[in-house]
Amino acid sequence: MAIRDLIPWSRTDYRVPAPFAVEQDRRDPLLSLHREVNRLFDDVVRGFGVPAFAGTERALLSPRLELGQTDAEIRVIAELPGLDEKDVEIVAEDGVLTLLGEKKSEVEDKDGGYSEGSYGRFDRRIALPRTVETDKASARFRNGVLTVTLPRSAAAADTVRRILIHSDAA
């Protein structure tokens, strides 16, 4: 998160009095240029519905996850469009499930005289409860969707304690 995200007003809403802004720009023209270039990039990116540049690379390479749990298992579903199962690695270690992946794409057109490549890596870490049996975990990859199923131990149901909520009636 950038510091400017904590400011309660946006750049378009905040107006510096004209004499002060002109005086400040005269003192530091590079600051003025820097501010203007940042504004232009933010405007362009905002127009495409993409978040601002801070953290954008990670957001684009990070798969969307869906987590679900029942008394019997924990299920992690990751959307990985354009990847094959050979491009993905799953590791369960020290109470953490880690999904690793790398996408490589190269296109070469000899008639057009160009080649194009795109590369990207991601890793997602998910904390697991102690009651999961990682040695019995299974994974399935189909049509760009990875489903990891982690069964819970039988003792897990015994360790869950429901706490009743009492209301104070006046």
Results as ranks from 00 to 15, higher is better:
Glu89Met: 13
Pro151Arg: 05
Leu146Val: 06
Glu93Asp: 12
Ser138Leu: 08
Asp71Asn: 01
Leu6Met: 13
Leu128Asn: 02
Leu97Ser: 04
Asn143Phe: 08
Ser118Val: 08
Asp168His: 13
Ile90Gly: 00
Ala170Asp: 01
Trp9Glu: 10
Lys103Asp: 01
Ile7Lys: 04
Asp25Tyr: 05
Ser105Glu: 06
Pro29Leu: 13
Ala18Gln: 10
Gly117Phe: 14
Phe53Tyr: 10
Gln69Cys: 14
Val44Lys: 10
Pro51Arg: 13
Tyr119Trp: 13
Arg35Ile: 10
Leu61Arg: 08
Arg142Met: 08
Gly95Glu: 03
Asp25Val: 05
Leu31Trp: 07
His166Arg: 14
Val91Glu: 09
Glu85Ile: 14
Val50His: 14
Asp5Val: 00
Ser10Thr: 14
His34Lys: 15
Glu23Pro: 02
Ala92Thr: 08
Asp94Tyr: 04
Asn38Glu: 09
Leu65Ile: 15
Ala139Glu: 03
Gly144Ile: 11
Leu33Ser: 13
Glu73Leu: 02
Gly68Cys: 08
Glu93Phe: 10
Gln69His: 12
Arg130Thr: 07
Phe122Trp: 00
Ser138Pro: 08
Ser62Gln: 15
Val50Ile: 15
Pro19Phe: 04
Val22Cys: 04
Tyr119Cys: 02
Gly47Leu: 07
Lys103Val: 06
Gly117His: 11
Leu30Val: 15
Ala92Phe: 07
Ala154Val: 13
Glu106Gly: 05
Pro29Asp: 08
Thr56Gly: 12
Glu93Ser: 09
Gly95Gln: 07
Glu36Ala: 15
Arg140Val: 11
Ile165Lys: 10
Ala2Gln: 03
Ala2Thr: 09
Ala54Gly: 02
Ala156Gly: 04
Asp71Cys: 01
Glu36Gln: 14
Lys136Tyr: 07
Pro151Met: 05
Val107Lys: 01
Asp84Asn: 14
Gly117Lys: 12
Ala92Asn: 06
Asp109Lys: 03
